[in-house]
Every structure is written in structure tokens, then in C-alpha cells.
């Protein structure tokens, strides 16, 4: 536990230092959402309806941004060897990395999402659903992302491969995440948030083991 906390603290420290990825993901998120009205027009009704979906898609894309470096940086500078020889174990490394990734990207994205929703004219009644769906769903994005990042660990341009690997896997999260927001816009009850919670829970529980397996196969060969 102490070792996992140490790794988590180290990664948070690195991400917040100069050149860290924490701020960049946020800027990217805001840029995508800001660009949207230029593409589809500024009709407030239209924007209100697509707001949840756009914020969700932009959040997922922003999550992918620094994902390829999640393990690769440690792999290249020899730290992954040292972590592998620590009492953490690969499952511990994976869990700490997933939490770190969420704290660095998922959580800040969730926090600034209401600001961007304001730009997109999201009705006030949908804000709780937006926050809740991001809070529940983004950890699953980090968890799935870490598994894919571990799989592409030894690939030099793995960052280009990640979106392709993750697109079909992330579709359910986007569907239910955006669906939960849309339900509030349309004032209907569709249960999306419960499906999202179920998918997220399963993903978060399984991912450390899948990620650990992927790390093992990439390191020990």
C-alpha cells in the first residue's frame, strides 16, 4: 500500500511539474469543445442537445492524449524494471497508474466540464447528470486505457495505435455517459447512469489484472 502510494505521489508530482501532461489534456479538451460550434453552427437548441455527447467525446479524446506515455516513460528510462522488482507487483503498478491517470486527467476534466457545458447551452437540470456520468465513467476510460497502453508498451509509435484499439471498447462508455446527460435534457428516465456504473465497476475491477498481464508479457521476453 505504501509502495503504491509512493508511485502515485511520484506520478502526480511529475505530471504537475513543467512539461507535465495534466494541463495539456485540459487545454485539448477545451479546444475541441470550443471548435464544435464553428463546425455545426451556434443554434442554442442544437448545441444543448449535443452538449453531453460532445463533452463526452472530447473527454475521451483528451484522455487518449498522454496515454501512450503512461508506462512507456518508465519503460524507457529503466524505472519499470525497478518497479517490477519492488514489492508492488505488476497488479500494484497497474492500479497505482490507473488512479494516477484518472487524477491527472479524468478528475480535472470532470471539474471543468460544467464550464464548457455552459458554452454549449446545456440546460441546468442536466448538470448533475453530466458531472455524475463523468465522475463514474472517466475512471473506466483510464482503466481501459491503461490496459491498452500496457499492450502497446514496446511500440515506438504506440500513441497512434491506441485510438484504434480503444475506439470499439470505449463505445459503451460514451453511449451510456452521453445517454445519461441526454436523458436529463429530454427529461426522460432511461437508466443509462446505472448501466454506466455497472460497466465502469466491472472495467475498473478487471483492468489492473489485464494491465498487469500485458506488462508482464512486454517486460519479460
Amino acid at each position: 500500500m505504501r509502495a503504491a502510494a509512493a508511485l502515485l505521489a511520484r506520478d502526480l508530482r511529475i505530471a504537475t511539474r513543467a512539461g507535465g501532461s495534466a494541463v495539456l489534456a485540459l487545454a485539448f479538451f477545451a479546444a475541441v469543445v470550443t471548435l464544435l460550434p464553428f463546425g455545426i453552427g451556434s443554434d442554442p437548441k442544437l448545441l444543448a442537445r449535443v452538449a453531453g455527447g460532445v463533452i463526452w467525446v472530447a473527454a475521451v479524446l483528451a484522455n487518449l492524449l498522454g496515454l501512450d506515455r503512461l508506462f512507456q516513460a518508465d519503460y524507457e528510462d529503466g524505472n519499470l524494471d525497478l518497479l517490477a522488482l519492488s514489492p508492488l507487483g505488476f497488479e500494484g503498478i497497474a492500479a497505482a497508474k490507473i488512479v494516477a491517470h484518472w487524477l491527472i486527467t479524468g478528475l480535472p476534466l470532470t471539474v471543468i466540464a460544467p464550464l464548457l457545458a455552459l458554452l454549449l447551452n446545456l440546460p441546468p437540470s442536466a448538470y448533475p447528470a453530466l458531472l455524475l456520468s463523468l465522475l463514474i465513467g472517466t475512471p473506466a476510460v483510464s482503466a481501459l486505457g491503461s490496459a491498452a497502453a500496457a499492450l502497446t508498451l514496446s511500440i515506438r509509435r504506440g500513441g497512434l495505435l491506441l485510438p484504434l484499439l480503444l475506439l470499439p471498447l470505449l463505445a459503451p462508455v460514451v453511449i451510456f455517459g452521453a445517454g445519461a446527460v441526454l436523458a436529463q435534457v429530454d427529461r426522460v428516465e432511461n437508466g443509462a447512469i446505472w448501466f454506466l456504473a455497472a460497466i465502469s465497476a466491472v472495467t475498473i475491477l478487471l483492468s489492473p489484472f489485464v494491465t498487469a498481464a500485458a506488462l508482464r508479457l512486454n517486460l519479460s521476453d
Binding site: R2, I14, D77, G78, N79, D81, L82, L85, S86
Partner: peptide, 30 residues
């Protein structure tokens, strides 16, 4: 692995962290 002190080709120094921070991290890790 828990008995191994490893010195490989790469020294594992994180460019953003100071030597003191690196050692503090490893003290907690192992």
C-alpha cells in the same frame, strides 16, 4: 525480485524530479 538490487543500463532518473525526491520515492517503494 524483492531481493534484487538492480543496476541496469538505464539509471531510472526522472528528468522532472531531483535526486532527493528520487531517493525519497525509492525509500518508500522498497
Amino acid at each position: 525480485g524483492n531481493s534484487v538490487g538492480w543496476l541496469g543500463h538505464h539509471d531510472g532518473a526522472k528528468p522532472q524530479l531531483s535526486p532527493r525526491e528520487m531517493l525519497l520515492f525509492f525509500a518508500q517503494l522498497c
